[in-house]
Design a protein around this nucleic acid. Sequence first.
DNA 1: TGTCTCTGAATTGCTGTCTA
DNA 2: TAGACAGCAATTCAGAGACA
Length: 397
Amino acid sequence: MQKRGSVLEIFSTFLQFESDWISRWIADPKLHRSMQQCLSQSSQSQESNHFWALYWHKVWQTQKSPLASAHLCAYLQEASYWTAKKMTMTFGSSLSLMDLFQIALLKIDKIFQTFNPQQGTNLEQYASLVFRSIIKDELRQRREIDLCTNWALLHKLSQKKLLEALQFQGLNPEAIAEYLLAWKCFQALYAPSQGRSTRKIPEPDATMWGQICQVYNQQSFKKPLEPDILKKRLETCAKAARAYLYPQMLSVDAPKPGQEEGSFLDSLSLDLQHSLESEIIAQEEEEIRKQEREQINGVLLRALIKFDVQSQRLLQMYYGQGLTQQEIAQQLEIKQYTVSRRLASQRKTLILTLGQWAQNTLHYSLDADVLNKINTILEEWLKVHYHHPDLSAREVE
DNA sequence: TGTCTCTGAATTGCTGTCTA
DNA sequence: TAGACAGCAATTCAGAGACA
């Protein structure tokens, strides 16, 4: 992918994909004109991308202007692309690089809403972090939904989401009311047996179908239904929910519906040569981050080993087994607040250890911001460590 | 979209126990 | 006896879900 050179290009061009590869940068004529006009009128034409990013973000904040949103979307193309690429390499996925790229950009408004220029951060770096969490969340949820049986999905579903899904299918209000009633009866009567995975809830047996049907017929003003019809209705609900919550991805450069030639982005054009420059920079940055991660692992593992057995057990129960403080308190026969205090004290020790290391090695000054970041890193690390101890141990070797 | 409710987690102020 | 630590009860905070 060739780097965009000028401010004009950066705020008015978009990536075009061919299969799963970048084909070229293409300019949006409207954005191109708008940016040209801004640059010609502004004494800030030579200012950095950062300046214009903050400018368009301010416009978006004050006017909620779609034009500002489009300029920022163009600006964040690279951030979205590299995050999507990293995620496909790290996690692998049934979704392509292009799909992940689009998932990230679909929720771009979230970045505009939560970005705070006062904190002195760079919008592009901030967007990369948020894109990463958006994609991870999407992949996790899709995996959950893919693994769910219809009956598990119906259990997880909220009434609001089911209603939206049924409306999305174009059903009339009367039909929707009947489907909702069927779902409510199912929810009320069919509870999965304890200990069973919440993803693998099996189909109700014949007796249960009979009971659900009986309650449904008591509450419905329509002609009484047979259990197999009710079952089909609930299967339709599950199908509608899957289709609504996780629709098939459609590429922005896919052919226009009903047209053999031309795509959504065909009105745009700008030929670019391919370059490896950005890939090399990204690989170097990744290498540095990897080394830092390994060092952090070492520091935290050495600190953890110094904890007594009970403290280690507490952390294992909280982060490893995912127990609540109340559950841990019951098992250890102590009070919830004692658990809370001990966890807080252990976290404080680890934060100070990591802070000391950051101060000595990376020459960070330990202000509130840095400590907050260390706290976030620590939380993530503890979850990974206690879920996959082999992973963190391997990185330390 | 805003409000309400619920739940888990964290905090606060006071008190008791233990130890150097 | 001071300081560290823990117990207790009440309160606050934050996030998620339901609902009008």
